[in-house]
């Protein structure tokens, strides 16, 4: 349960039932290990997203198995697939509905840049409409790559000034 910036260790013999830590460390520790994804499965990449959730790759090892289709209950939106101009407003609306703090993973070439679909109907990268934290390359990325992205995101989350942000509200 140790995250890298947990400064003060816990020794029950010395301190009894008390833990002393920084608020940031605790909040970030909680957040990193229960990133609930909002699976924005749009196209082919969604299949690999499902595969990461299934038994072989088992995303629950990283605390992110609770795929919630309700944006209110999720922390990280995984945009898996081609975002078309028709879909983009809906995607943005879902993003707006997610509670703060929220993160976005752009999974696959299409979500990152439009990928192989250079055409009139495709949004050329989901970062034009929502801010993206982690990009994953690949068409489709292997589930391992998605897991890697998740770990990268956890690293990012664990260094945030969460307590300050909370107070800023």
């Amino acid at each position: 349960m140790v995250s890298s910036n947990q400064d003060i260790g816990y020794n029950s013999k010395v301190e009894g039932g008390v833990i002393v830590s920084k608020a940031d460390a605790v909040i970030n520790w909680i957040r990193t290990h229960s990133l609930w994804p909002m699976p924005m499965g749009l196209a082919c990449c969604a299949i690999e997203l499902m595969a990461s959730g299934a038994s072989r790759f088992d995303i629950s090892r990283f605390g992110a198995e609770v795929m919630r289709f309700s944006p209110r209950q999720s922390d990280v939106m995984i945009v898996a697939g081609t975002v078309t101009y028709k879909m983009a407003p809906a995607l943005r609306r879902i993003y707006d509905q997610m509670a703060d703090p929220k993160w976005v993973i752009a999974m696959g070439a299409c979500a990152s840049t439009g990928g192989m679909y250079r055409s009139y109907a495709t949004l050329q990268g989901v970062d034009r409409i929502v801010p993206v934290d982690v990009y994953v390359s690949g068409c489709p990325p292997r589930p391992e790559a998605l897991l890697d992205a998740l770990i990268k995101l956890q690293d990012k989350v664990s260094t945030e000034n969460s307590a300050k942000n909370l107070l800023k509200g």
Binding site: L42, A43, C44, T82, T84, K86, A90, Y117, S119, A121
Partner: peptide, 27 residues
């Protein structure tokens, strides 16, 4: 919501170049 313009794309590339796009029809 997933109209990506495959048919128009096909008119703009060679037959061989289109093969990877067929992967993504019924993925």
């Amino acid at each position: 919501y997933l109209h990506r313009g495959d048919e128009k794309i096909a008119e703009n590339m060679t037959y061989n170049q289109f093969v990877p796009y067929t992967d993504r029809l019924d993925y």
